[in-house]
Simulated scan of single mutants.
Amino acid sequence: MNEHLTLTVNGRDHVVEAPVTTPLLDVLRNHLGLTGARYGCGLEQCGACMVLVDGDTAYSCSREAGTLEGRFIVTVEGLATDGALHPLQQAFLDEQAGQCGYCLSGMLIAAKALLDRNPSPSRAEIVAALDPNLCRCGAHPRILRAVSRAAGMLRGEVCNGY
């Protein structure tokens, strides 16, 4: 049975008509047109569907939309503000951190959560934060450099990554 759900996504309230058990990923992609989070495994094993919920990473493939009313959800689309890329997005471009790009939205979300908690992470901390996200292309060295570069950019430093 469909219900009216009010979800706060990327700073805006959205009313969606869907069963409360609908996965958040389905609501984001099919009801709100936010396709940055991707369906990978559906089992919380790949990170392609990752979003932020109240600042913490969450797998949108398994979170029921009905449990998220009153929570603040951020997707990869919500990282950019006023048409300007977030420093993480810019750093990923600068480091050419994407290859096929399927994992990148989850990587960006995980990196955002890390940098919000720790603006000066070590390489080991970056690796640990990104560990839940699978990348089969072999772009990990560039991704690590991009997160390091973004941390420096957010601190106002010139940073060339690791």
Rank of each mutant, 00 (worst) to 15 (best):
R38W: 02
R29H: 02
V27Y: 00
R63S: 02
L85M: 14
G55F: 08
H140S: 07
R63L: 01
A84C: 08
V147W: 07
E64G: 02
Y162M: 08
V76D: 04
S120Q: 15
M107Q: 15
F72K: 08
Q96C: 13
A129Q: 04
L144A: 06
L144Y: 15
T75G: 06
E69P: 01
E69D: 07
I143S: 10
L115N: 04
T35Q: 05
C41T: 12
A97T: 13
C100M: 14
G66D: 00
V76P: 02
L108K: 01
R12L: 09
M50Q: 01
E44N: 07
E77P: 09
L68V: 03
P121V: 13
D116N: 14
E44T: 08
T6E: 06
V127E: 10
V15T: 15
R136Y: 13
A150Q: 03
P19R: 06
V53L: 02
H140C: 00
T6P: 00
T57Y: 04
E95S: 14
A128C: 08
H31F: 06
C135W: 12
R29D: 05
Q96T: 14
P121K: 11
M107F: 15
L93H: 13
A97R: 14
P141W: 13
M1E: 10
R63H: 04
D116I: 11
M153R: 13
D116A: 15
R117I: 10
A129W: 05
V16R: 08
H86I: 09
L114V: 12
C61L: 03
L108A: 12
T67R: 10
L28D: 05
R142Q: 15
G156Q: 12
P141Q: 13
V27C: 06
R155K: 15
V51Y: 02
R117G: 10
I126D: 06
N2D: 05
L93C: 11
S62L: 11
C103V: 14
A48C: 11
I126K: 00
L79A: 07
N160W: 10
L115I: 09
A37H: 01
C46V: 11
P132F: 04
D116Y: 07
G83M: 12
G98Y: 06
L114P: 09
L25K: 02
I73S: 06
A37S: 15
Q90L: 13
A97D: 12
N30A: 01
I143W: 12
P23V: 07
S62G: 02
A84S: 12
E69K: 09
L130E: 00
L115R: 03
I126P: 02
G66T: 00
V147E: 07
L32N: 04
E95R: 15
Y162P: 15
L34R: 11
V53C: 03
R145E: 14
A113P: 04
D26Q: 05
N118M: 12
G138M: 14
G83R: 13
D116C: 09
A84M: 11
Y39R: 11
A111Q: 00
T22E: 07
L93W: 11
S148W: 01
F72Y: 05
N160V: 11
T8P: 02
G101N: 14
G47M: 05
M107R: 04
S122Q: 13
P23L: 03
V9T: 03
L115Y: 05
L24A: 00
